[in-house]
């Protein structure tokens, strides 16, 4: 719960879920985006995103697969928000989407990956970075 006096620290932070009028607010409902970090929503079906179980604060890797080749396009990105597909700012027209923090170059790579092939989001919270970035290795 957010008490009187704690609100000032939350002003300007980004809301991580849609909140109905009258709902108690929690600090977990907010995330601070720095001025140097970009946020990008990745539209993906829940079955390609840990069954829809991702939550703000999770770390994810983004994989692209096409023509029998899979590669990592983003590793260890923080999940900022998860659109549940029911509408609102992130859900759009009923589409599930996961918003991640990334830099400008990574945003370009993800945008390019979105334009072709299939994307999968893999929860990597607490995991070591992958040692193999492309499969098959000689692709």
């Amino acid at each position: 719960m957010v008490r009187t006096g704690e609100l000032d620290g939350l002003i300007g932070m980004v809301v991580t879920r849609s909140i109905s009028s009258g709902t108690l607010l929690s600090e977990r409902d907010f995330v601070m985006l720095s001025s140097t970090v970009r946020a990008m929503s990745i539209p993906v079906d829940p079955e390609h995103a840990v069954g829809g179980a991702l939550r703000p604060g999770d770390r994810v890797d983004v994989l692209q697969s096409a023509d029998g080749i899979a590669r990592y396009v983003l590793v260890g990105a923080e999940v900022l928000m998860v659109g549940d597909g029911t509408g609102g700012a992130l859900g759009g027209a009923g589409r599930y989407a996961v918003t991640v923090a990334l830099d400008a170059e990574s945003a370009l790579e993800v945008a390019a990956a979105l334009s072709e092939g299939t994307l999968d989001l893999v929860r990597s919270t607490g995991s070591a970075p992958p040692s193999v970035l492309v499969y098959p290795p000689d692709a």
């Binding site: 008490r3 980004v14 009258g22 709902t23 607010l25 992130l90």
Partner: peptide
């Protein structure tokens, strides 16, 4: 009794929090 924050209006995910989006209620 303490006062806790509740949403004064419907707030969409992705919005930046502003003071007038919040009111306090005693619990």
């Amino acid at each position: 009794t303490v006062s806790v924050a509740v949403a004064a209006e419907d707030i969409s995910a992705g919005a930046r929090l502003e003071a007038d989006m919040v009111r306090f209620t005693p619990v």
